[in-house]
Design a protein around this nucleic acid. Structure first.
Lengths: 109, 109
DNA sequence: CCAATAGATCGATGATTGTCAATATGATTT
DNA sequence: AAATCATATTGACAATCATCGATCTATTGG
């Protein structure tokens, strides 16, 4: 599906009225955060000491099935919030801090 | 419906793994922002010069029907992002900046 | 090669939700 | 009190999506 999220859009919400196109794009990004499972997965990747997290260590603590976790991680990757690198049998995820910063900036007045 | 959103929860996402309850609560808040119509309505209220905005001035520019706008504004009010004050026949909305700040802080590492 | 393992994809399903037309509520005006 | 106006509520429907079991793909080790 891969909705190809744009990185360039969107003034802060207090900077003027959002046009429909930007609103759709931004809403799509917030939609990614609008799920408990994804928020938990994101926080796991964000707070791991080594900077990267193996998919194998996400399934059990998340309390979701393996296919569900895989699905959510794909959504996070497509949204640009994390990167996935496959090494051997394992998939390693890293946070993309700039993407969080971008979202923070949108919520500025 | 009024999901009674809590104001007290949630460390920054990078501060540790979110527990399920906090994740549900936070996701509920992001869900409010995960809709183009609501984002536009919020940006209209956020960027009005006088600080308050009449519901009557939201319907036509939002491109949605009056019931739909009323619905979305209720969602924004319930989420604590705006306040509603009824004066006479009109409903006036004001941004709650602290609520946006709260969300910004959650996205901090 | 073969078995085992990690992860991705597919298909189905139940729940949620954005939307509007119709109607209700409540305030103002004549 | 009747008519009008702004907004809220209700009911219904289509679309989206989180979830899981089953299966597929790819990599490793024997």
């Amino acid at each position: 599906m891969k909705t190809e999220l744009n990185l360039t859009c969107c003034e802060p919400v207090g900077a003027g009225v959002l046009d429909e196109a930007s609103a759709v794009e931004l809403a799509g990004l917030f939609k990614v955060l609008a799920d408990p499972a994804r928020l938990r997965l994101l926080s796991m990747v964000a707070s791991v000491g080594t900077g990267e997290m193996c998919a194998c260590d996400l399934v059990e603590p998340s309390g979701r099935s393996q296919p569900t976790v895989s699905h959510h991680m794909s959504v996070l990757v497509d949204a640009g919030l994390v990167t996935r690198e496959k090494r051997g049998k394992w998939a390693w995820y890293r946070l993309v801090p700039e993407r969080l910063t971008f979202l923070r900036d949108v919520l500025t007045l």
